[in-house]
């Protein structure tokens, strides 16, 4: 029974990791950018949900929609200006430095506006739990897993079934060919980045209910996203899901059977092993084969 409970805990935790990482994975896969601002989008989503809940009484799950829309616009503008300029004037590597710098600015701005204190969002259901016989599960984390699955399926459908999704895939696979076919690649890069930011922001709304956050938490979410992508594979929602769930399970089994203090060590050990054995992750690079 302990094993079942541990597995359940791991899967639920993995759902949060997946949701928080999918935007990072998309941007990495399509644009080739390691977006170190990703954690800022996650935390900004959490702060936005907190404000909407405190000022308007809007449930954080409902607030995912306006937050997604807002961060989509922010992400689009950010990519079309700062990142695009950096890449066009230097190289793709410059984006790493630029996003790192913007993340530091973003963190300090969030601290300036919201203060350095730890915050939480506490809707009425945030302390509820479900019991299945001897198994116990936190409702909010279950909701996070559900929301994660829904958003990942939606993203997969968008990428597979819509013109926009096909254009993104085409751009990721052969940017030059896509451009020659009449696609506005720069605009598509902006839209993809916006989509990534929107997904990060919506995950932040859920993370805000699940655990305390402050501006300083952004580092952990960028790092988690990076590990998830390395584990699962680049660019695909399925990769993010697999990577997230795997990370959650590694975390849970290590905490239960080896020692909770070694969870991060185990995560990084797996990261190193994956980079050596299968650097493209379990599901590979969704856009890589045509490149």
């Amino acid at each position: 029974m302990l094993f079942l409970q541990t597995t359940l805990n791991g899967l639920v935790l993995g759902g949060i990791y997946s949701l928080a990482a999918v935007g990072f994975s998309l941007v990495f896969g399509v644009l080739g950018i390691v977006n170190l601002t990703h954690g800022i989008f996650v935390v900004a989503g959490a702060y936005a949900a907190m404000v909407l809940y405190a000022k308007l009484g809007m449930d954080p799950l409902l607030a995912m929609l306006p937050i997604g829309a807002l961060l989509f616009a922010v992400g689009y503008a950010y990519q079309r200006t700062v990142i695009q300029w950096a890449i066009s004037r230097a190289s793709l590597v410059a984006s790493l430095v630029v996003t790192f710098g913007v993340a530091m600015i973003g963190r300090n701005l969030l601290q300036l506006v919201f203060g350095p204190d730890t915050h939480t969002i506490t809707p009425s259901y945030s302390f509820s739990s479900l019991t299945f016989g001897p198994l116990q599960i936190d409702v909010v984390r279950l909701v996070a897993l559900g929301a994660s699955l829904v958003l990942l399926v939606l993203l997969a459908l968008i990428l597979l079934k819509t013109h926009f999704g096909r254009a993104i895939r085409a751009t990721a696979q052969q940017p030059l060919a896509a451009q020659l076919s009449g696609l506005n690649v720069r605009n598509l890069h902006g839209l993809t980045f916006g989509l990534g930011a929107a997904l990060a922001g919506t995950s932040g709304a859920i993370i805000g209910i699940v655990q305390p956050f402050s501006a300083a938490s952004e580092v952990a979410w960028t790092l988690n996203a990076f590990i998830v992508v390395v584990l699962g594979g680049i660019g695909s929602p399925a990769g993010a899901l697999v990577g997230g769930l795997l990370l959650g399970l590694i975390n849970a089994y290590t905490a239960q059977y080896i020692g909770p203090s070694l969870t991060q060590a185990a995560m990084f050990l797996v990261l190193v092993v994956m980079l050596m054995v299968r650097p493209n992750g379990l599901l590979g690079n969704a856009f890589g084969e045509s490149r």
């Binding site: 541990t6 805990n9 935790l13 116990q136 655990q211 952990a220 905490a255 239960q256 909770p260 203090s261």
Partner: peptide, 20 residues
Amino acid sequence: YIALPAQVSDVSNVLTTIRQ
């Protein structure tokens, strides 16, 4: 006597032990 990492994001499994 349970050691947690310096940065903690989840204690579900530790709490399973506590409940037991």
